[in-house]
Design a protein around this nucleic acid. Structure first.
Lengths: 252, 252
DNA sequence: TCAATTCAAACACAGAACTTGTTCGTTTTC
DNA sequence: GAAAACGAACAAGTTCTGTGTTTGAATTGA
């Protein structure tokens, strides 16, 4: 069990129990208490938990999005494949908007050697693209919330309104036929809607764990999207239904 | 002689001669030709030079700013001290604009644990500040030129015009009483001027190697700045003169 | 207050990752 | 076509990173 697996375990227990103890985690992972303490300190830095004597308590409000530091390690392989596939949907010369989110960072990686114009909504994607010599990189204005690495606020909406894109690549937190595409918070919803208004083609990049999920912020019906790129974990039934709504679905 | 020193030597020779040979560099550094080739490949990736059979030729146009990858290793200690000193000029609660430039990245580091609102003009500084939980981080819109990590263009100017700052921390390429403060290119000049218009207090962060230098883009007279923070390499004479122009000078 | 527990700094160690040099077959140059 | 330059692959040395142990200080609860 390596460092990443321990972190996942800690987060899983925090979500289930709300608190953890150093001794319990040392037992579970088979590592020393010192190592567990270091793990907890690390997660405390990220804002995931608060240390207390003997353990830690969760700072993750239930039903709210886990911080970037946690999300970036979920479903890594699927996200890479999805990122690659979305990259293939975009042709050279296009202007592309990239939403926030770990999946979309993989799209940024896929675009890094291409000749395209990109406006990313996350600093993570911006960092990836800034190393490219071929990409023309535009940044939107906006506020970067701590812990998140994504731009929000009225400045961001204004930036989006001022530009037109060939393709917008959006992420989401939940995706169901009944409840449509959902995001975790309302600020994010406003941004996504603005992005959709500014783009000719809208691509939704969502790994299969998102399918069937519903979260608070309602972005719009599934039929508002032109293409869905997801992974092979998506069931045949759900894909058939989404296709019936008029969305082209790619499973990779 | 380690990797960084070799790189510096290679760049120095490129600037002096315009070209270098693998054999010559192997001789000079006392390292194998294979190592030199790897160094050259690395610099070629950064856009500093172009490989040719037997060596490399410079891609650094004379009199133009060396790329970020090179600048970040010049006068490192002085920049750190200057960054720290500028941080002490800024009080909690202020709204601060941070210019591009390697010196200003050090200012960002100094502000990372403070309670301030910051708008950085470089992705490098943004990356530093995005890890902070105390800083409120605003990004300007704009275009990020490849190789550089700084925002430019009309979008950036518009973002600056829309906000008011307590303090703007600017960098420069040259600073002399006769020719004023100068930057390398005109796009940069426009940005710096816009920043100065939006700020109550304007601080210039410039290591002593900049004093006496003159480059193409004229930003304005020295007296337009309220404070200059430089390092102890600055001569007494130059400091006295600049103070006489009405600028508070801190030497650290 | 005391005893038990928890904590974190310091050191030690193993494995990973990076840097460098060498070899050797291929490519380029003249 | 010969000499030089190249770069892939491997090997050796180094540094970095993650982990565990020790130990004295801090915290907790009786």
């Amino acid at each position: 069990m390596d460092s990443a697996e321990r972190m996942d375990l800690i987060v899983a227990r925090l979500r289930a129990e709300g608190e953890v103890s150093v001794a319990e985690l040392a037992e579970l992972t088979g590592h020393s208490e010192m190592t567990i303490r270091r793990d907890l300190d690390h997660l405390a830095d990220k804002g995931v938990l608060r240390r207390v004597h003997g353990g830690a308590v969760s700072l993750l409000p239930r039903g709210q999005e886990p911080p970037y530091a946690i999300r970036e390690r979920m479903a890594v392989d699927a996200k890479k494949r999805i990122g690659q596939a979305v990259g293939e949907l975009i042709s050279d010369g296009q202007a592309v908007l990239l939403d926030r989110g770990t999946t979309v960072v993989e799209v940024a990686r896929a675009l890094a050697e291409r000749h395209v114009t990109v406006m990313p909504l996350s600093l993570q994607a911006a960092a990836v693209l800034s190393e490219s010599t071929t990409v023309r990189l535009l940044m939107p204005g906006g506020e970067v919330r701590s812990g998140e690495l994504a731009m929000t606020g009225p400045l961001t909406e204004a930036s989006l309104a001022a530009v037109r894109f060939d393709t917008a690549v959006l992420s989401c937190c939940g995706l169901s036929l009944a409840d449509g595409v959902t995001a975790y918070d309302l600020a994010d919803v406003a941004i996504k809607r603005a992005a959709m208004r500014s783009a000719q083609q809208v691509v939704l990049a969502a790994d299969s764990t998102k399918i069937g999920q519903v979260t608070m912020g309602h972005v719009g019906p599934v039929s508002d999207f032109d293409v869905l790129v997801t992974d092979t974990g998506a069931s045949d039934d759900s894909v058939t239904e989404i296709r019936a709504a008029g969305v082209a679905v790619h499973r990779v």
